[in-house]
Each structure stands twice: as C-alpha cells, then as structure tokens.
C-alpha cells in the first residue's frame, strides 16, 4: 500500500481472527488491530478528523495553539499531527499515567501540563477548561464533546469492519470518550439488524474515583446510551489476565484496555455458545503494549502486576 504521507495512511487496519480463543466454529472472535496506525493507537482516527474539521471551520490557522485534556493516546496522535501541520500543542494529562506517554508526547514536540492524580481524567478536563477560559486564543478540540471524534469512526472504522466481516453480530470496545462506540455502533446499527454494541469500561483503583462528591462526576457529551446494548465494568485483574492471554494464545501484544475489551468479548461469546447462537464478535485492539512496559504489566505474578497498576490510568 502506498500513501502520499504518513497522515494519509491512517486507518484501513487489519482484522485478524482468534483461532485459539474463539470457542467454536460458530462463535468466532476477531481483533481489529488499531495499533497499526501511525502513532500506534486508534486515536489517530479521531485526532486527525478533529483537526481537519477545526481547519475547515476556520478555528485552526497556521501557528495556532491546540489545547487538549488527554490521558495519553489522543495527545500522542495530536502531537504527531500538530508537528506535521505546524501547530503548537499543549496537553493536560493526569500525572498517574505511564512514563512512556509523557516521553512520546515530548518526542513529537508537545508541551505537558500535569493534572493531579486524584480524580483522574475528570481533573484533566477541569484543568483544561480553566486554561481554555484564560487563553481564548487557544483551540481546545475537546475529544469528549467533539462530534468529529465519533464521526471518524462512523465514516471509517465502522465501514471497514462491515466490509471485512459482513456477518458481524457484536462489536466490543473500550469506553473512554465514547467516540469509538458511538461512531462504530451507530454505523453498524444502521446496517446490521440486531447487532450488539458492547462497552468495556475500565474500573480503576480508588484513587481515580477520588472526587469530592458524586455531583462532580463526568459523562462525555458524546455519550448516547441508546447506541449501546450493554456496558461492563472491567477491573484491572481481568483486564491484565486477558491481555496476557491474548499474548500467550494468539501472539497479539496489546495494551491493557484491550484486555478489558477481550474480557467482555469472551463473555458475549460464552453467552452465544450457551444460547446455541452463531456469533462473529469484533473487539477493538486500541493500542499495543509498548507504552505499558514500564508498569510491569507483562511480567511476574498477575497479583503483583495488579498491585503495581493500582492508581494508574491504564486505558
């Protein structure tokens, strides 16, 4: 495949079957390898679409400063795009994210403002909104409420999945900004009667939920509950266990949130087997494992790895 530039090569990622983890010939599980994007994560898609839309709307002009709250992957994608397109990028990132993320952001030229660990991404959003109010000339793309985020998936990820697997019955992905599930979910619902759209939401250690009261919680503006069939909360134990299983059984080296999605996919597969129904379950590999090596997720006893991960934002 030949492209005019790196930016043009985003998307059209492979989908691979999981012959060992699929329970039967009638109930199959497929991995959509989004780590095969230029910066190694699914976020290249929404990042480029958000930048393109802001350019089209006249919000972004050469030399502009982009501001974005991000736990990592979106920031890394934006940093690459900003470097190539000549924008300055400031990321607001929780301090309890892996060391690799900060290194990658700086490598592509982004500046980082750390937000306190307690409260996780909620705090990053709050800090970024404050900065945006102080600097009206900065452009906050705001992935949680930017319609171009979910549209990127509606226009690209969804159609790719349907083209590669017209018999798809389930789509499973991690729930963060909700952009992937909203975009792919809407597209598949329009084209595949009865399709299930399943969210795997990371459940972190207590520190991340360290809000002062429940009214400070956060639901992304993009989220529309009616697009989902169901939503599972997956803790770090199950996420880590499945991430290792994916590596050991199928040779796929994925990040930890992918383990959470696989956990939900295997749950749906078991349900289909029990009901005697056929299923083609696609789950999304959001990124590779490279950025999480320093967390020790892939070595030693599972329980120890789980302890090391406590308090970290792993999705």
């Amino acid at each position: 495949m030949r492209f005019d530039s790196l930016l043009d090569s985003v998307g059209r990622t492979p989908m691979v079957g999981l012959p060992r983890l699929s329970p039967s010939a009638d109930v199959r599980i497929w991995a959509k390898l989004e780590d095969r994007n230029p910066t190694g994560s699914v976020k290249d898609r929404p990042a480029l679409w958000m930048v393109a839309q802001a350019e089209k709307d006249g919000l972004l002009r050469p030399g502009c400063t982009i501001l974005e709250p991000t736990s990592g992957n979106t920031g890394i994608s934006l940093a690459m795009a900003a470097r190539l397109k000549g924008y300055r990028l400031i990321c607001v990132m929780p301090e309890n994210t892996s060391a690799e993320r900060a290194q990658l952001l700086r490598m592509w030229g982004a500046e980082i403002i750390f937000s306190p660990a307690a409260g996780g991404s909620n705090e990053a959003v709050r800090v970024a909104k404050g900065l945006a109010a102080e600097h009206p000339d900065w452009v906050m793309l705001y992935q949680y409420g930017n319609e171009a985020n979910s549209r990127a998936h509606y226009e690209t990820t969804g159609p790719e999945i349907l083209a590669d697997l017209p018999s798809v019955t389930h789509f499973v992905a991690g729930l963060g900004t909700t952009g992937t599930l909203m975009g792919v979910g809407r597209y598949l619902r329009e084209h595949v009667p009865g399709v299930s759209v399943v969210a795997a939401e990371p459940r972190y250690g207590e520190l991340v939920y360290g809000l002062r009261n429940v009214d400070e919680g956060f639901v992304p503006e993009l989220y529309d509950e009616s697009v989902l069939t169901t939503r599972f909360s997956v803790g770090s134990h199950d996420a880590l266990r499945r991430t290792r299983e994916l590596l050991a059984e199928e040779g796929i080296f994925a990040g930890i949130s992918t383990g959470a999605s696989l956990h939900a996919a295997l749950g749906m597969a078991a349900k289909a087997v029990k009901a005697g129904e056929r299923a083609d379950i696609v789950f999304l590999v959001a990124d590779g494992g490279w950025k999480y090596l320093s967390t020790g997720a892939y070595e030693g006893e599972l329980e120890e790895a789980e302890d090391r991960l406590d308090g970290h934002l792993w999705a």
Binding site: G217, F218, V219
Partner: peptide, 10 residues
C-alpha cells in the same frame, strides 16, 4: 453490586 461515580476516560 458495585457503586461508582462516573469518571472520564480517553
């Protein structure tokens, strides 16, 4: 039954 406040991801 697990109760959790809604938090941001991404």
């Amino acid at each position: 039954v697990t109760v959790l406040p809604a938090v941001a991801g991404g």
